[in-house]
Design a protein around this nucleic acid. Structure first.
Lengths: 221, 221
DNA sequence: GCCTAAGTACACAGGTCTGTGTAACCAAAA
DNA sequence: TTTTGGTTACACAGACCTGTGTACTTAGGC
């Protein structure tokens, strides 16, 4: 928690250990606001959180917040833009990268502070009215789809475009399911489905299921 | 729009055609409230709509609304319960039923009043706090999963449970994607993926892709 | 020591929201 | 005719929300 003016008091009177560590790090005020807004917006919902709450949580005045962001809408936009981080490049083989996506998804599901996709949630909350929010949500979804597509092209998959779309369906489906069910196993289910789709497109995803399609016996009627 | 007391006036003075057709049907007041709440909650968001707005839209007083529902929370719960309709039985073969799900999804996406899954949206909007909402959302999702599972069992699929889960991932994924992108093609993509998954489980889904798994040529590296 | 930029405290306008209280009204049943 | 149950109009309490205005304080650079 930010301490505001008590800082001076702290550095003159308190234990040196507290003085030496610049506490929550020498962040810029804007970044501190965004960080807190992110936590509250994401965890509790954009509409559920007022600017007062954000300011109070940081320990700053509402006026300061409005000195950095002209309106709540601007803060919301900044929140979403900050969430729009591009994946860092990996040197692992593309197929592994794709499947690793689902593993990381599973880890995120297991964390108790996971609350679905911030972009989908924002669109759901803010309704069809908010053009700005929708725009950035679309951009985000498309960027993720293209990430899959690039790797599929690298793998020589014929219809990389279509398969990439199918993979993002699995990602978003597992996110939605986990949001309501709190069940990280949804990520594993998505991964298994992804493997089937990849194998079907000629991608080698290792381990189980030998080439010949296994036929289960059909029930009598 | 509900006409309230003008009803009597209408039936005594207006054209007989209007009199004969019981206009919006002799609905109970509760049902009329729910119908309007449904439209507004779903289209604009639960938090975005106040009880005043609902009452005004019907043309009744806010007091009347509160005489039928003790609180907005109760109205929200009733709204979601009303949305929880069970699918009507079909005599078509199970595989067709499953695939038809995605066709109907596509039609719903194409309608301009589609705004995602009301249950997922409610959970996203109302946050992790609201136990009641989450409970009914879970029940809904599970019921849909079991619907798939029953048909897969009928088809003799070995791991019907796992495959049913994967199919609901595709459903929810396409819903989330369409919510942000407004692209009904997401339903088609989900259907194609579903076909692959079904075929992989030994289900005959007709048309393309003869038995032997088609191998695409791989890129040089 | 002075100036400036940033932050603070605090009040407040104007809006919305949920929920209640109350007296009058009307239709239809008794 | 009288009663009864559902409805209306309207005011209001009490929160909470976004956004602004203002005068004061503080830290750091000059």
């Amino acid at each position: 928690m930010y301490l505001g003016y008590d800082w001076a008091v702290l550095s003159s009177e308190e234990d040196a250990r507290y003085r030496m560590a610049p506490l929550p790090a020498p962040q810029t005020m804007k970044e501190r606001i965004l960080e807190t807004a992110d936590k509250l917006f994401y965890l509790q919902g954009i509409r559920a959180i007022g600017v007062d709450t954000i300011a109070a949580e940081i320990g700053i005045s509402k006026r300061t917040l409005y000195n950095h962001f002209p309106s709540k809408d601007a803060l919301i936009a900044a929140y979403l833009e900050r969430r729009f981080v591009t994946q860092r490049p990996s040197d692992k083989p593309p197929a592994e990268q794709i499947l690793a996506t689902f593993d990381s998804l599973e880890r995120r599901f297991a964390a108790k502070d996971f609350r679905g996709c911030p972009f989908v949630n924002a669109v759901a909350e803010l309704g069809p009215t908010d053009r700005a929010v929708k725009k950035i949500a679309i951009a985000f979804k498309e960027s993720r789809r293209l990430w899959f597509r690039d790797r599929l092209i690298e793998l020589g998959v014929a219809d990389a475009d279509a398969l990439a779309t199918q993979l993002v369906l699995l990602v978003d489906g597992s996110i939605a399911q986990d949001l309501v069910r709190d069940d990280p196993a949804m990520a594993r289910a998505a991964k298994e489905a992804a493997k089937v789709l990849l194998r079907n497109a000629g991608v080698d995803v290792g381990d189980d299921a030998p080439k010949p399609v296994k036929r289960r016996k059909l029930a009598p009627r």
